[in-house]
Design a binder for these strands. Structure first.
Lengths: 225, 225
DNA sequence: GAAGTAATGTCGCTAAGCCGACAGTAATTA
DNA sequence: TAATTACTGTCGGCTTAGCGACATTACTTC
């Protein structure tokens, strides 16, 4: 059987996990595959409707940017994750990345064929909404140090789902951490150095090792200096 | 035919608009009706799963509150609108309010009976997500005056959909405006008085009349003092 | 290994805006 | 009509954190 578009088994995505292999096979025709270079913005042939994409490999940054060049990163997607484009947020490949994508109109066909997919999409959107709302609360109430601690928390959460390895290492630069916590490189640096002096973490080029993460989780819920 | 729970025709909600009357009639059994007094928090008999509610009359504030008593209002729902509870956001009646509600499990049954409902829910969640994401961008990039202008903008948008009457009057107190724009009463007051001096608006007790809204919409997209 | 680039460390200035405090005024209720 | 409560107006102090500027250090590439 030919597979000109080189679409892999959809069952590899948690989103489709456990669904009928026959259905999954038949849905392949809706999908397209595309790869992006590091730092390249994810753009898809415009179809009028929104696009949904699944990350096959690599990492994708979902971020807003302001008129004056600032950037706020909402989340970073890894292999296996889904994202549905909406709003003005921008998707950019952090490293070489491959994705499968389809437009919302086609996804609707899939939903019609399988109510279970509809349910899962609703659940997925609900989850994203939850996270997004929490982010709003963070920005509204918490000061930078607390938000940074929560960035660490979220990052580890996401990692624990996929890989159990590498205990408490966060592979993000200060610049990236600033973008994720809605602050600036300098301020983040100051906070990190402060925490390093307290023995809470170790700073390295390109990554941070958390030695006493518990000390930070206090800040995640409460609010102390 | 008895209607002990006193559930009105579901067709009155835009969400269900145009769906088969027979189906709508049959879904009534899933719904419950409840009314809340002014300032009362919306709580529903716990069913384990999330709750979806439809506002019959009144107004409902969806807000986050912080440990130290601050509050951030995400949105204010009016009659006809739907909301699906998630996260830690709190729903509170601003005035005497009546709602229909059901839990997510039951809503899933409805979705299974009608793919169209599933599609609409997905669209609804997508729209909310869009708005929520834009809110994040606001909080991350814009300063208070600009966010306040956007609160006006959003409020008028929402009003134009429902009622065309009352040109540019915003019925919110400074306190409420502060909560909606993630700031404090004092700061909001200062900005409003400044705009009043420029003849952009008129301040009244309990409401604001926009005289030259165009002057504010500039701030909505750009960023000037 | 020289040049270039990316990441980090540090300082001081400045501004936005939070916060407490208090006063005045309008609406509501007793 | 007195009392209470809700809303608005205003001020000064204080803190957080943004921003420019510059130095240093590590990786990368040719």
């Amino acid at each position: 059987m030919p597979n000109p578009k080189n679409i892999p088994d959809l069952g590899i995505f948690p989103f489709f996990n456990g669904l009928s292999p026959a259905l999954l096979e038949s849905w392949k025709e809706y999908f397209n595959r595309k790869s992006f270079a590091k730092r390249q913005r994810l753009v898809f042939p415009s179809t009028g409707s929104d696009v949904i994409f699944f990350v096959l490999s690599g990492e994708v940054k979902i971020a807003y940017s302001s008129e004056d060049g600032k950037e706020f990163t909402i989340t970073i997607l890894s292999a296996g994750e889904v994202y549905s484009e909406h709003s003005l947020a921008m998707a950019t490949a952090i490293e070489k990345t491959e994705v499968l994508y389809l437009n919302m109109a086609d996804f609707r066909s899939i939903m019609d064929e399988s109510p279970e997919v509809a349910r899962r999409l609703v659940r997925l959107l609900g989850t994203i909404l939850r996270l997004t709302n929490d982010l709003i609360a963070d920005l509204a109430f918490r000061e930078t140090a607390s938000r940074l601690a929560r960035v660490f928390w979220r990052t580890l959460q996401a990692k624990n789902i996929t890989m159990k390895q590498q205990r408490d290492t966060i592979h993000l630069t200060h610049e990236e951490l600033a973008s994720l916590s809605g602050s600036t490189r300098q301020t983040i640096n100051e906070i990190l150095r402060h925490w390093e002096q307290q023995g809470i973490l170790e700073l390295h080029r390109g990554y941070v090792v958390l030695l006493k993460p518990e000390k930070l989780w206090v800040k995640v819920s409460h609010d102390h200096a």
